[in-house]
Design a protein around this nucleic acid. Structure first.
Lengths: 345, 345
DNA sequence: ATGAAAGCGCTAACAC
DNA sequence: GTGTTAGCGCTTTCAT
């Protein structure tokens, strides 16, 4: 409606530069094996015409798309309630951009969408996929394997079945949990409780395992299942307080949970950290810094996780993308966590 | 490495079904004008071969991509610190998915990336673009106009220049601000302060205007500039308290700002809402519900904003996408806001 | 080092 | 209603 409907083609550039289409193609794709003067002429023609290659035509022959799908399978609204997702995407985006790849975002709402994603992936629109399959019972991994697209997963895969050696990137949930609990122990606490995350997610399971690594002999009543939400944290904290009024510390599976716990503790008149020390997980800034008192927590570098996933995938797609820095032979990469000390523990 | 490298083509399906490629194409694209028995035969062949159309080949001739770009230009980390962005994306994703369009995400980090985005858009990879240009001085709008791609903006465009009648979707920031302030007035407050957002964003300007609509005669010292962050809210609140110790209410430009203000008020021994009533904006759940006391605020339906943007764009791309429900002739659509009453005001 | 020519897989006129 | 045919814009042998 507005402007020139027809963008210039290779042909047009060739005509303008007085060379063949093949030569223009060579120049546009790096210019190897073309003599300087010609390169120059072609470059100028490209410039003058404002030529931009037609990606569809190119893909048709190269069978490359320079695009990767990011699949986020999260029926719950949780992903959207925290910045996790955004940070992860940012890391991914940075890495993909640096290698001239596009990011196609596939969000799924419930199981119905899984088939759609499977079809899309199988359709060969993208060169690879980055998948966040947050739940253990997801059908997605299977569909994705079926699609035959190179994939890197975010988070350890829970399904021990089938998917052998799936490449994944994860935070050191278990190690971080250990560090959290050890910190509480170091504070002299002895009645340490744990509010877990949603146990259908590996991160929650791993954090629970970390807790148990340190508190092997813990009173089983000191562990209550939460769901990664503040409401879950409140509920669990009440239960904990009712069961074990003598507890003196809480390790919450994430910061949101900790925030809920904190509220109940205040409501019940327990001082934090004097009566009860509280430690979270994630270091989700808008939450951890805003609680009262500010939350001591375990930080994971979310953005770096995303970046690493993208890097791993790009390397699989094209070995030339490999940095000199990385050479992991293992299918899984686990990123370290660090303790951030604030006021709650 | 794993399986059949060659996916079946139209040709193969045609051979299998014993018909021509054209017929297969017709069936695959809806099947109009093909007799039932043939349709059936082709469908079966497609099924058996696991045929999926090659999108690149199709785009090459149709010049459609069934994909739209979502451009998020946010040099600051702010976008990533709140769920705004995620909700918006979810709304967009739902709408696009419903119309079989893909979402290509373009995140920009600073000005350098703008050129890249412009090039991508001009490259004709996508049929349209949804743009969140959060700052007034962005070069992006110009580049996008230059790319000649149908675009819908998120948020009122600040640049009165050039871009005439740019299509946009925005929340009723001004009206929401008025409602907030009127609520405070209705509570009997008379010394009402306002902590603004970052004034290079139209949302902040509009909220300030709404404040002034109601408080035309307000003491100018009651308005302090913030930046949409908790830290900014703290700083502004301190300044406000120093200048006007007699203030009895605060309208914060967003919930994050309000959270910061709340902290300072508590620190200074002011009770909320008894001494000072506080109202925010956004109704960002993880923040608004977690503050102490929980925040009274103005809710905007972020997800719906995203959905509407996508709908508007799709309609422009193909009038058939128009729902019967919508028929806005105006270039801008403004979504209503509502007051959510909690405990802070 | 450069050009000519053959497709990549699909859709859309146009015949029949 | 169905088949035939001519490209869409590009890369890539293969000659030269």
């Amino acid at each position: 409606m507005t402007e020139a409907v027809t963008r210039p083609t290779l042909e047009a550039v060739a005509a303008r530069a007085g060379v063949s289409r093949a030569t223009v193609s060579r120049v546009v794709n790096g210019g190897d094996g073309v003599r300087e003067p010609l390169v120059e002429r072609v470059r100028r023609a490209v410039e003058e015409l404002g030529y931009v290659p037609n990606q569809a035509a190119r893909s048709l022959v190269t069978r490359r798309h320079d695009a990767v799908a990011v699949v986020i399978a999260e029926p719950e609204t949780r992903v959207f309630a925290d910045p996790f997702f955004a940070l992860q995407l940012r890391g991914i985006s940075k890495e993909l951009t640096a290698h001239d790849n596009q990011l196609v975002l596939l969000l799924t709402e419930g199981r119905d969408d899984h088939a759609r994603v499977g079809r899309y992936l199988a359709g060969g629109h993208v060169d690879g996929a980055l998948v966040f399959s947050l739940h253990l019972d997801d059908a997605l991994p299977g569909l994705i394997r079926g699609a035959g697209v190179p994939t890197v997963f975010g988070g350890r895969s829970g399904w021990s079945d089938g998917t052998p050696r799936a490449v994944y990137v994860d935070s050191d949930n278990r190690g971080g949990a250990r560090a959290a609990v050890r910190h509480l122990v170091g504070l002299g606490r002895t009645r340490i409780a744990h509010i877990t995350g949603a146990l259908d997610q590996t991160s929650a399971v791993d954090r629970l395992d970390g807790f148990r690594d340190v508190m092997a002999e813990a009173d089983p009543r000191l562990v209550v299942e939460g769901d990664f939400t503040p409401a879950g944290g409140e509920r669990a904290m009440r239960e904990l307080l009712d069961r074990c009024p003598d507890l003196d510390a809480v390790f919450a599976a994430n910061d949101l949970t900790a925030a809920g716990a904190l509220r109940v503790l205040r409501e019940r008149g327990r001082r934090v950290p004097d009566d009860v020390a509280v430690i979270g997980f994630d270091d989700m800034l808008p939450v951890a810094e805003q609680t009262d008192p500010p939350l001591t927590t375990i930080r994971q570098d979310i953005e770096e996780t995303g970046r690493l996933m993208a890097r791993l995938l790009l390397r699989r797609l094209d070995p030339r993308n490999a940095d000199d820095t990385d050479a992991a032979p293992s299918p899984g990469v686990v990123l370290p966590t660090t303790l951030v000390r604030r006021a709650s523990a």
